[in-house]
């Protein structure tokens, strides 16, 4: 570049100047973005681990001896294990229906899938309190028969289902739209059944997108605060999930255990990010590698 500038100054002055300028601008932009991300994402994340481990490994691990904390971890795992499979199955079902069939009201269905994203999680939680609480006929009947949905584990599962519903469906709809129906049609024409077509043709094509959706759904299920907070009733050792227990510990002046638990959740987040990075490449390939 420098040689060029020296050899042919007169002709290229203008364009060189502008490219030089843009090089500076580019570097400036890149460093600004990095600085921003460092200050607002990396530093806070590191500080969680720093705070958690400040009192040494002994205090860190003793944080997890608290039965209420242990129970919050267990509850979060139960909720996640219940929510992710259900949303995966329904996500596939909806994506399949929307992309492989033509029917009236299809656009509305696609819009509906996004509803949990546009509704605040607090309202998501409140809907279920109104539906299954003492307010409604249904709620009163359930409570009278000792079936407690809200302020109990099922309520937390349902609220989390609501909030995490769009992840798998959205991911698959865009991927399957891109891929079209040609292969499935071929498969059906050649005599394969619907089930066979799904498992031998569709599933292998969407597997990366599916995994990607599952991972996002999983991350949100673990981390959901707002909707769960409304339906939980905040009973220590029973209906506090990990995020709620972190708030609880913080409010009890137990800062070290709060940060210790927060560090576990951050670890989940980092693992999610890494998996996401790996999967993203494969999803791109799957979307582009089709005829």
């Amino acid at each position: 570049m420098e040689n060029m500038i020296q050899s042919d100054v007169s002709k290229q002055t203008l364009s060189v100047r502008s490219s030089l300028k843009s090089a500076i601008v580019r570097r400036l932009f890149i460093s600004l973005v990095f600085l921003f991300l460092f200050c607002f994402l990396v530093v806070p994340l590191i500080s969680i681990f720093f705070e958690a481990l400040r009192q040494g490994a002994g205090v860190y691990f003793s944080s997890f001896a608290d039965p209420n904390t242990l129970s919050s971890i267990r509850l979060t795992l139960i909720v996640t294990l219940a929510v992710v499979p259900i949303n995966t199955v329904f996500g596939i079902l909806i994506a399949w229906t929307v992309t492989k069939y033509a029917f009236k009201g299809k656009n509305m269905l696609v819009t509906l899938v996004d509803l949990p994203f546009s509704v605040s999680p607090v309202i998501g939680g409140l809907i279920f309190v109104l539906l299954f609480g003492e307010h409604s006929e249904l709620g009163r009947w359930l409570i009278a028969h000792n079936i407690n949905i809200v302020f109990n584990v099922p309520g937390i599962v349902i609220a989390t289902l609501f909030v995490t519903f769009p992840f798998v469906a959205r991911e698959l709809i865009s991927l399957m739209n891109h891929q079209g129906t040609a292969l499935e049609e071929a498969s059906l024409v050649l005599g394969a059944g619907a089930w066979q077509t799904f498992f031998r043709v569709t599933l292998p094509n969407i597997k990366w997108g599916l995994l990607y959706g599952i991972i996002l759904c999983n991350a949100r299920a673990i981390g959901e605060f707002g909707a769960v907070s409304v339906v939980s009733g905040h009973i220590s050792g029973m209906t506090n999930t990990m995020p709620l227990q972190i708030e609880n510990l913080y409010n009890e002046y137990q800062l070290d255990p709060a940060f210790a638990l927060a560090s576990i959740m951050s670890l989940f987040a980092i693992i999610t990010m890494i998996l996401k990075m790996i999967l993203e490449k494969n999803v791109q390939k799957a979307a582009n590698g089709r005829p």
């Binding site: 499979p85 407690n148 584990v153 099922p154």
Partner: peptide
Amino acid sequence: LFIVSILIVGLLSACGSSSA
């Protein structure tokens, strides 16, 4: 598939309420 999913939901709520 739909029935299976409904069953899962039902089972879950049963577990939850029985544990409570």
